[in-house]
Write a protein that binds this DNA or RNA. Sequence first.
RNA 1: GGUACUCUGGCAGAACGGUUAUGCGUGGGCCUGCAAAGCCUAUACAAGGGGGUUCGACUCCCUCGGGUACCUCCA
Length: 464
Amino acid sequence: MKLQDTLSNSQLELDISKKVKIYLCGVTVYDESHIGHARTIIVFDVLRKYLEEKGVEIEFIQNFTDVDDKIINRAQAENTTAEVISTKYIQNYFEDFDGLNVKHATIYPKATDHIEDILKFIEKLIDKQIAYVSKNGVYFSVSKFPNYGKLSKKKIDELESGARIEIDEAKKDPLDFAVWKFSDVEPLWESPWGKGRPGWHIECSAMSNKYLGENFDIHGGGRDLIFPHHENEIAQSESCTGLQFAKIWMHVGMVTINGEKMSKSIGNIKSIKNVLENWGPNIIRLFCLSGHYSKPIDYSEELLKENLTKWRQAEVCYYELIHTKSEDNQNLEETVFKISKDFDKALEDDFNTHLALSAFFQLIKETNRLAAEEKLGNEDAQIIKSEFLRMLKILGLVIPEMTENEKQEIDYMIENREKLRKEKQFLEADKIRDKLNEMNIELIDHKVKTIWMKKEIIKSENKK
RNA sequence: GGUACUCUGGCAGAACGGUUAUGCGUGGGCCUGCAAAGCCUAUACAAGGGGGUUCGACUCCCUCGGGUACCUCCA
């Protein structure tokens, strides 16, 4: 699989001959997660699901930043502790992302659980005279890392001439950044240099090192993390170990809304809770995967609606596959095999989920067409079904389960409707269909049989 | 101001130095008791602007311009 690497600005081959180690920068837990977070995490969720489906072992680490000025500010505003805030929003995170059918990471390390590791890491940096103690904290000396700026393609002198860098007397160089901040307000920990808390970037260096070692396969996050977060992580980690940090840097584009970045400071946020309530997990996932991961994607009702149409087709396909009874096989192995290959090929080529989805929908269209023509045979359906389910699994799409009782009741109602239709009592027959509709069961009348499908309830569909 | 990315039809989004991309949408028709599902057909005079290279450019080169992000916390 080839992936675009931000550092080398070229496509690199991912080595899948052994365990693949991935570190994803997760969220700072001080508020609700929004669709922008969802996109990054869903992209990585599908990436790991695809690789796992290929039989590749994955170690997937995703951190929670649970010590940070924003958390502390929020705690003060709500008259509580940082721990209460971060615990609350970690719980909130899992509600949202479980709702989006995101598979759990191998480990979700938290900064506050790794203070010891962070302190050891800082100690190494001080020993190597790359970090220094000043009156406000311990700082990383950017000038000690010759390649500083290599990820974000920034030049040190250009950064220095930028007017937006804070001037801090305690720093030797304005670009130096804190690895440890002295403080006497909670949360704080003892350190050999003074009480305080870790800087923002150090946790990821320390925790990725702890769980994945000095060198691992993919380090990812949103594009907005390239600078300064990932740049600083590289500086810290590579100065500390003297080795290459991540092999591939994978960055996911922003979700925009009316062309503008979705962010808390602008206030144009669509929270996951809100969108999940209105559109459900499957449509959100399709939406997040509908563009290339590296490019921005614009949030719009129109795009969501398009994905709703497609999701309905997928649902029809599923129910056609499980209800089929025809003996009229078309020997579709080759067709299915080709579509399956297209799907994989798209993902292998810099993880092009849009093209992979095209293949997925091609399979669906083909199936639905044959089914409507009563030409979907049992054997073909088996072949299609296993491929369809494979794709569903990789994409993380889920068709709601039904109980046997429900199924029996539906079959019984359909039988009654058939009788009435044969007797041309259409008003009565339609009443049954209406009743089923109320249960979100939709009927598809084929020439020789009627099948049913259970539609996922999508609130937005009924609004105008 | 600097750096990176980006600019294809109403929207989404490909390939390719020369062929209709495709999907969604929209119009019309077929199927159906009626719907839904499905089918057929039509529709988009598509390539940010201007130069160049070429027999021929959306595709290569130059140039101008627009957009987004980052340069401060941010997925």
